Computed example of a mutant assay.
Amino acid sequence: MELLLNLLLIAGGVVLLYFGGEVLVKNAVVLARSWGINTMVVGLTVVAFGTSSPELAASLAAALFGSPSIAIGNVVGSNILNILLILGLTALIQPIRAQAQFIRREVPFMIGTALLLWAFLYLGQQVGRWEGLFSLILLGLYIGFLYKSSSGENPEVAQEFEQEYGQPAQISWRNYLGLALGLVLLGLGARILTLGAVALARGFGVSELVIGLTVVALGTSLPELATSVVAALRREPDIALGNIVGSNIFNILGILGLTALVQPIDLPWASIQRDMAVMLGASLLLWPFLVTGAQLSRREGAVFLALYAAYTFWLLQG
């Protein structure tokens, strides 16, 4: 009975996080467009960061309620899942190739953020308030870089984003109400998910870190999954790739940055080094496809999925 209750809490939290993220992103896009923000910037920041809002809510709730392992595990697990599972599944549906120059420039930055988190945890065994502040400053610089570089993108890619996010924005009080509702749903869903995840870990004798890397990461990554699959079906590869790369950057700089600023996160390096290595390895694995413009075909998508299955099996065995 207790197991069923914990599973219901996790499922309920995931549902609230998913719909909270959807409502938040939908209304944030309308507001951003009404303020005259470039459609490509909207797609790469508002949408990519908005789809990571469940991760932000879950990690913040976990850290505040004394489960730092879930907070970090959620971010690291989501980044691994975004590349190996979501892009693998996306490529199976529709082979993808990066056309946009900005994506090729973003990938080294994504790898750099992974190395930055590696340094925080390896050298200091924590992500403290100073590290959190530094991460948020870097995020601000990254957004400024995107804003400036988006104007020089090739017309075909610009058209892709214009088609997806360029509809005339008709703003009303409902958009602000939707934004507030999305935040409420995210907060409530994060608390329920954290309660269920912690109880499930204790019930099975599994570490909170493993639960964060698997159950919580999968639940909070549903918006990225939905966005990328829809983009693949519509033959919009740069939106799918931009969403994943942008989300991975935001997960480390924005989510852990803000979480650490509110509540410093302590975690022994030995407990997370394997997963950090997998996250960095997955990022490096993606790099050749995006930088060279090579196609991420169905075969490579199947390999990505197999690697994610092997990693999950490895986690549960350990």
Rank of each mutant, 00 (worst) to 15 (best):
V184K: 00
I171L: 15
L222G: 11
L146R: 09
V198K: 09
L200I: 03
L177A: 15
G196F: 01
F161L: 05
G182R: 01
L200C: 03
V215Q: 06
G219N: 15
G203Y: 14
L213R: 08
G203R: 13
L179P: 04
L193D: 04
V210D: 04
L188D: 00
S150F: 08
L218Q: 08
I211M: 14
V215F: 10
S151D: 12
V210P: 05
N175R: 02
A226I: 13
E162Y: 04
G152T: 10
V210W: 06
Y176K: 04
E208F: 02
V216F: 06
V206Y: 10
L213P: 08
G144L: 14
L186K: 09
V210A: 14
A199Q: 12
I137F: 13
T220V: 15
F204V: 06
N175T: 01
P155D: 04
L218F: 15
L193I: 03
P223F: 13
G144D: 06
G182M: 02
V184L: 07
E162M: 07
L185M: 15
G178P: 10
E224N: 15
I192C: 00
T214F: 10
P155I: 01
L218D: 05
G196I: 00
G144Y: 08
Y142N: 07
L218Y: 12
L218N: 08
E164M: 13
G189P: 07
N154I: 07
R191W: 07
G152I: 01
I137D: 02
G152L: 07
V206R: 08
L186F: 10
E208T: 08
S172V: 03
I137S: 05
E224Q: 14
L141N: 04
Y165W: 14
L177W: 10
E156T: 03
L200N: 04
A180P: 01
F161G: 06
A217P: 11
R202L: 09
F145P: 07
T194A: 07
L185Y: 03
V198R: 11
L225S: 06
I211E: 09
E156G: 00
G205A: 08
I192L: 12
T220L: 10
F204P: 01
L222D: 11
F145T: 10
I211L: 13
I211W: 08
G178A: 08
L181E: 00
Q159C: 00
W173N: 05
E153G: 02
S135W: 00
I143L: 06
G196P: 02
Y176C: 04
P155K: 02
L139R: 02
L225Q: 09
P155Y: 01
G187T: 00
L222M: 15
L218M: 13
V157L: 03
